[in-house]
Design a protein around this nucleic acid. Structure first.
Length: 843
DNA sequence: CTAGGGTTAG
């Protein structure tokens, strides 16, 4: 007695292209024209009419005709055609004296299996049972195959139970289907269990299991199982070989792939299209595009799948133009692109921002009824979003009957790309199911927007919602930690990655190096860097940046030279970091050399940022004249940043005249630039030119030029506390005030005199000191002294550059309170110990 | 009757 099954409500709509039916016998054709027509019926256009004609002639009472009709529908393989077949069986049942046979039902089940309509297959199965027909050993392979295609493990396990109840579990085909099911659904252990119990195994049993391991990424096991199979005396066929080759492709292990190829030669397995396809895929996935292309070009009769393989690999390597060329090529050969081709085509349009090609791809999709496949619709949404056509994207999304979490994620990512964080949030809130990608996307967006605390908060919230952070989550959170200088959290991040053995790839490795470097722990930064299994310019740049952060020019140059020894070609960015390191370290000589070598040795033309670095380097060191000469000899027009660097240098070296000149230039180029006026009035104030100070102040007021407020943060017990200048809002305000008073007394006794040159106003001395004493970094330091135990280092992060008074203040506090204090300002790290700073007072 | 190729979002 058979048992009925429960189907989940999800219905996958996946039409596929039809296959050609060729008549076998012309005499039979003449005798049975309807059979001939049915065998050649490839679309649903002609079928209803044919069916009608058959009914008129009473042919529909013959099961052989209905069987042919069902076959035709199964071959078409669309939801529409299969529903039609089902109606045909119903009509057949309604006729007196006829009822559907198990063969018919099995045939239709095969159709559902073919396109992975698991729920429809289960419903049909229930119908079979309810009409008192006992399913047989042919029924279950189809049913299981439908479950496999739909990745419906829950339904598959139910079917497995029924199989046992019906005593069919010893059938070889049923067992093979079960292995396949578990392999497809990633339950390789269950597949292995079925496999181990078998007394009789054939090549399909082995191949299914091998493929299961390959799919799980356990390519090593897959390959060794393959050798085991050969030893057991089972001869591998081309399917087995294709599976093994694709296992190598997944491993991205070209060496192993080549060894397997040699073995194939030895065994004498003939190369067929499937294997060739697997080979091309392997070469391309392993990064050897040329080898893949060569094989592809040599192939005499390329089929659709081979084209699709090449096209999708092009997409993966960002070769969107090549995709368009190849698609053009296949159209010329008369090959009809299918849904997989279209998917790549649309992705290519999205990458290129090619709206017109995207639109025609969309039209092709609609013409060929491919929109039912949700991946296609999602790709179209993404394409329209990337082409800046938000409305068109929503037009596709709105009526989509089969929205998935990917559809929602695509919208979110699109909104973020548009800079519409509000819309992204609303979409995030609105979506019915959120997955890891949804959370990671939002976290990434917050990081990009500079909302680091919020990013970290969302990171915890994500875990409260049952999500386990992955590699991508860690990349996002690592940069947030870096920017916040949240060292405790940074250490946790790294420990978490180690504990959960999250693979540190290029992206994550670089993020971690950067994180530790920004947290002032260059040792850990270099440690992570050395543990990365691969390094590129970006990761080397991050490592050099760790040196730059410390103002260690020598170290930066050493790492740079090491990079060159490893044969890594420098790019524009690495020189920016390198020159910055020289600037912070005061290495004028080295800086000049590196700047010169850019073009002469490395063939990289200095851009405006590099000139900016040089002006900064020269100006800071007091070579104001040389800096000015450099600016005036630049091959491009100097911008406000360049003049800003010079102005800052003038402030340090108190050159009022040149400062005025630079300030004029800046006002010309960027009248709204914040900070410049402050800097200039600073210089005037120093020179006692109070009239000019007043003028600048007036300008500031009139134009409403924004002044960036000083902002400092400190991490205590994993919590980030933020302070703005003259902060009155912190709950610990009273204690902080008391602490500041205490410090100021102690410092006064030690001979500390506030450095008031940084206060730009002609207010009286008392007021100046008052303003100074409430700088955000001082508040943060005081808070740190209150809340942490003796001997615990205090780490403060500031959004602007530290002022000279706070610098002096920190030095003395480090000595009097015997505390190590780290202040990361906009540019670099200052580590205060025993009354001295790591920057050597040069910053 | 069972096994193999191509797939979107961070």
């Amino acid at each position: 007695m058979a048992v009925t099954l429960h189907a989940s409500p999800m219905v996958l709509a996946c039409p596929t292209s039809a296959t050609t039916i060729i008549p076998k016998d012309f005499k039979a054709v003449a005798k049975n024209p309807h059979i001939f027509l049915l065998e050649n019926c490839k679309t649903m256009k002609e079928l209803p009419q044919l069916h009608c004609d058959m009914m008129k002639r009473g042919l529909c009472r013959k099961s052989s005709y209905i069987n042919k009709l069902i076959s035709a529908c199964v071959e078409m393989g669309t939801y529409e055609s299969l529903s039609y077949a089902r109606r045909a069986i119903e009509l057949f049942n309604e006729d007196e004296g006829t009822s559907g046979s198990l063969f018919m039902y099995n045939c239709l089940l095969r159709g559902y299996a073919f396109i992975g309509f698991c729920d429809e297959a289960i419903l049909l199965y229930n119908e079979i049972v309810l009409s008192d027909i006992d399913p047989d050993k042919y029924t279950f392979p189809f049913l299981l195959s439908a479950c496999s295609k739909a990745m419906a493990i829950y339904e598959g396990i139910q079917v497995h139970g029924v199989v046992i109840k019906m005593g069919l579990e010893k059938d070889l085909f049923v067992r093979n289907s079960l292995i396949h099911l578990y392999s497809e659904c990633g339950e390789i252990g269950l597949g292995r269990k079925v496999f181990d119990k078998m007394t009789e195994r054939n090549v399909v049993s082995w191949t299914s299991l091998i493929n299961g391991y390959a799919r799980r990424g356990l390519a090593k096991e897959a390959v060794s199982l393959f050798f085991e199979m050969v030893e057991a005396g089972v001869e591998p066929n081309s399917v087995t070989m294709a599976c093994v080759i694709s296992a190598c492709a997944k491993l991205k292990d070209l060496g192993l792939g080549k060894r397997v190829c040699a073995y194939i030669d030895e065994l004498g397995v003939k190369l067929n299209t499937h294997m060739l396809n697997a080979l091309v895929d392997m070469y391309m996935k392993c990064g050897d595009i040329d080898a893949g292309e060569k094989l592809f070009d040599q192939c005499a009769n390329k089929n659709l799948v081979l084209y699709n393989t090449v096209i999708s690999n092009y997409i993966h390597h960002g070769m969107a133009r090549e995709v368009q060329v190849v698609i053009h090529d296949m159209l010329r050969l008369g090959l009809r692109p299918d849904r997989v081709t279209l998917l790549s085509a649309i992705v290519a349009c999205a990458q290129l921002g090619d709206l017109s090609a995207g639109k025609s791809s969309h039209a092709y999709v609609l013409r060929n009824g491919l929109e039912g496949w949700d991946s296609i619709s999602n790709a179209i949404i993404d394409m329209y979003m990337k082409c800046g056509k938000r409305e068109a994207a929503y037009k596709v999304f709105g009526p989509m009957p089969n929205k998935t979490v990917v559809s929602w994620n695509t919208l979110i990512a699109g909104s973020i790309r548009d800079g519409d964080l509000g819309l992204a949030w609303r979409t995030f809130d609105e979506m019915p199911v959120r997955d890891l990608v949804s959370w990671n996307t939002m976290i990434g967006a917050l990081v990009q927007e500079g909302m680091f605390e919020e990013a970290i908060e969302l990171f915890w919230e994500m875990q409260n919602n049952g999500m386990t952070p992955d590699r991508v989550s860690m990349v996002g959170i690592a940069s947030a930690c870096g920017y916040l200088g949240a060292f405790d959290l940074a250490k946790w991040v790294y420990a978490y990655i180690e504990k959960n053995s999250i693979h540190i790839d290029l992206q994550l490795g670089t993020a971690l190096v950067d994180m530790f470097s920004r947290c002032g722990d260059s040792k850990s930064a270099l440690h992570v860097f050395s543990k990365m299994d691969k390094q590129d310019v970006s990761s080397w740049t991050a490592a050099i940046g760790a040196m730059a952060m410390e103002g260690n020019a020598e170290g930066a140059i050493d790492v740079f030279n090491e990079m060159l020894e490893h044969g890594v070609k420098p790019d524009e960015v690495v020189f920016v970091v390198l020159l910055t390191a020289c600037s912070h370290g005061g290495s004028v000589l080295k800086g000049r050399q590196i700047f010169k070598s850019m073009k002469e040795t490395h063939g990289i033309c200095p851009q405006i940022v590099h000139y900016g670095c040089m002006v900064d380097l020269l100006g800071r060191a007091g070579f104001l004249k040389e800096a000015l000469d450099l600016i005036q000899g630049m091959p491009m027009e100097p911008n406000d940043v360049i003049w800003g660097s010079l102005l800052a240098a003038c402030r340090i070296h108190k050159n009022v005249e040149l400062a005025q000149y630079a300030a004029d230039k800046i006002t010309e180029l960027a009248p709204e630039k914040p900070g410049i006026h402050v800097l200039l009035s600073n210089i005037y104030a120093f020179a006692g030119k109070w009239d000019d100070v007043a003028k600048v102040r007036l300008q500031l007021k009139e134009k409403g030029v924004p002044k960036v407020p000083g902002l400092s943060s400190i991490e205590v017990n994993g919590m980030i506390h933020e302070f703005i200048s003259d902060d009155q809002s912190h709950p610990e305000k009273l204690n902080i005030d008391l602490m500041l008073k205490e410090i100021s007394c102690k410092l006064g006794e030690a001979g500390y005199v506030p450095d008031i040159t940084n206060v730009l106003l002609d207010v009286d001395l008392r007021e100046k000191e008052q303003l100074l004493s409430r700088h955000s970094e001082k508040l943060a330091m005081a808070f740190g002294l209150i809340t942490t135990r003796q001997g615990i280092p205090i780490r403060v992060v500031k959004n602007l550059r530290i002022c000279s008074d706070c610098h002096l203040f920190a030095k003395l506090v480090s000595k009097l309170y015997k505390r190590e204090i780290t202040v990361r300002d906009k540019n670099r790290y200052h580590i205060f110990k025993h009354g001295f700073c790591s920057c050597g007072d040069y910053w």
